[in-house]
């Protein structure tokens, strides 16, 4: 992999191990997200994908291994520090604040940053997700599933991330909603060069969106490569059937 002093990897994970109690769920995983790259991790239920993201976001401590963000070690940094350095997780199941309005949810996304950044980012985000503009004062709990997922991602973007991590954003959405979501996200990435780390069970969506993919099974990466090659290679299916 080409790494140079001028452009360190946006996110680099080395030999990361994590788990709950005695059980190891993530076993010595290494990966690299380059600046502006769209990367996905696909794999079956229980492969350890969500646990990996929780560790990367700082919600769970790793057992061993290192995580570095833009060349800085953040292995033991608390979640708020990672966020300020540009690593943002949009959690599984959206995790939006149902009792807050759309606008308040967006504000929460940039609450760790100065207010000037909030105003600037809000305009940018609403430009990419114009649907949210018409519901700015509505309670988030009253939005449709697709709109809630848009809100969750928009709230993540409010922090102006260098690396955006998405956990199963397509879960429970209609194909139409997924298409809109992907289009908005692609527009954002094209405009601001944000790197995306997408974790999905829905491999067809993930492979179309990402440039590179890792396949995760039983806590390990069992395959890595360009998505174009992968989509052509039918052997991918077998990792799901193991």
């Amino acid at each position: 992999m080409p790494t140079s002093a001028e452009a360190p990897a946006a996110l680099r994970v080395c030999d990361l191990t994590a788990g709950y109690g005695a059980g190891t769920v993530v076993k010595g995983v290494s990966l690299e997200v380059r600046p502006g790259e769209r990367l996905c991790i696909i794999g079956p239920n229980g492969a350890g994908k969500s646990t990996l993201l929780r560790v990367l976001s700082g919600l769970r401590p790793p057992v061993s291994g290192t995580v570095s963000l833009l060349g800085e070690d953040v292995t033991h940094a608390p979640p708020d520090l990672r966020l300020r350095r540009g690593l943002v997780l949009v959690p599984e199941g959206r995790g939006i604040f149902y009792g807050l309005t759309v606008d308040e949810n967006l504000t929460m996304g940039s609450v760790a940053f100065p207010r000037t950044q909030e105003l600037e980012n809000r305009e940018r985000v609403l430009a990419v997700f114009p649907v949210l503009r018409q519901f700015r004062n509505r309670l988030a709990g009253l939005l449709s599933g697709g709109q809630q997922q848009m809100l969750a991602i928009a709230r993540g973007l409010m922090a102006g991330p260098r690396v955006l991590m998405l956990d199963e954003p397509s879960l429970g959405l209609s194909p139409q909603a997924i298409r809109e979501l992907v289009a908005s996200l692609e527009a954002w990435c094209a405009a601001y060069g944000t790197a995306v780390l997408l974790v999905e069970q829905n491999s067809s969506v993930a492979l179309r969106f990402a440039q590179r993919a890792y396949v995760m099974a039983r806590g390990e990466f069992v395959y890595a490569g360009d998505t174009a090659a992968m989509a052509a290679d039918g052997s991918l299916l077998k990792y799901y059937l193991q």
Binding site: S57, L59, P78, P79, D80, L83, R84, V88, L89, P91, G95, I96, F97, Y98, G99, L100, E104, T107, M108, G109, V111, A112, F113, R115, R155, A159
Partner: peptide, 23 residues
């Protein structure tokens, strides 16, 4: 206020609030 918003957010979803950088 933003701090008040944080208070309400933590009351609703403490883990998610942490992801937003709220201590």
């Amino acid at each position: 206020t933003r701090t008040g918003l944080m208070v309400r957010a933590v009351a609703m979803e403490p883990r998610v609030s942490q992801l937003m950088g709220v201590r």
